[in-house]
Design a binder for these strands. Structure first.
Lengths: 142, 142
DNA sequence: CGGGATCCATCGTGATACTG
DNA sequence: CAGTATCACGATGGATCCCG
């Protein structure tokens, strides 16, 4: 029972870590906002309620599967409210909740930081990519 | 040329949107920090430099492929610095850069917001899941 | 108009094995 | 010890069909 102990320990550690992460509010938030469409929906709703078809048009590249799926997630998390008007053609409006607007502010904070520092990141990338091509000086640079 | 115009328009719109998103600093930031391992590495490095094996042990559940891959991304983006000491057993240290520490602060902001509001999200989810099971009152609730 | 269900392509992710 | 290359799998996203 000594041969695969390493793998088993790793597996156990992974399980413990996953459990830890699952409980971490920050990770849950990240999992939510890291979704490409969620962020776009939030942004689209920032200037008032929108209908399903409006969102579909504004966000453009989204498939209705992802749009519906993302909206349901947002609704479930209490970030947007869903209002159904059972007319002849059904009408559904989506709107940011107070919680959703709070999340928007966080996104705004992130956005500002990103805009202030993106150039530095790009510069770092360019430098890194340049070094990558130079024949010597990578390992011996330190 | 009228049959598949809709699909083509959608495709074009998608392409335009993708291009727009690719230029958006906020999205680039999100793409970076939404990575599960990247955030963990950042957190692990927050209290000083660490060696590769140390990181591997601290983060536990990570495979060395993902660890290396994430570290390279972070290095390329100028968020962590990589120092090689060419001894007999090679020694490599990773450390947060100034830019990396700045990112950490953003993560801290997010973390605090998440911790303050996660309960509300959980409550919303519970309420949503309860409604889901009730026989009537979903569509007619509004 | 809004959206549920299904099938399918893609890709990120991880385990394994090998190098220096 | 640190890192790369290969292979396999599962999750995710998208197109399509169909219903209320």
């Amino acid at each position: 029972m000594a041969t695969q102990t390493a793998a088993q320990r790793r597996e156990a550690a992974k399980a413990a870590y996953d459990a830890f992460l699952a409980c971490c509010p920050a990770r849950q938030l990240l999992d939510t906002i890291s979704d490409k469409w969620v962020t776009l929906i939030l942004a689209a709703l920032s200037d008032g309620p929108k209908r399903y078809s409006e969102l579909s048009r504004i966000i453009a590249g989204v498939s209705q599967k992802m749009l519906t799926q993302s909206l349901r997630t947002l609704e479930r998390d209490g970030l947007v409210s869903r209002t159904v008007t059972p007319r002849v053609p059904v009408r559904v409006d989506y709107e940011l909740t107070t919680l959703g607007r709070g999340l928007q502010e966080i996104m705004g904070t992130m956005k500002r930081w990103a805009e202030r520092n993106i150039e530095e990141v790009h510069a770092a990338r360019a430098a890194y990519d340049t070094r990558e091509n130079s024949p010597a000086g990578r390992a011996a640079a330190g």
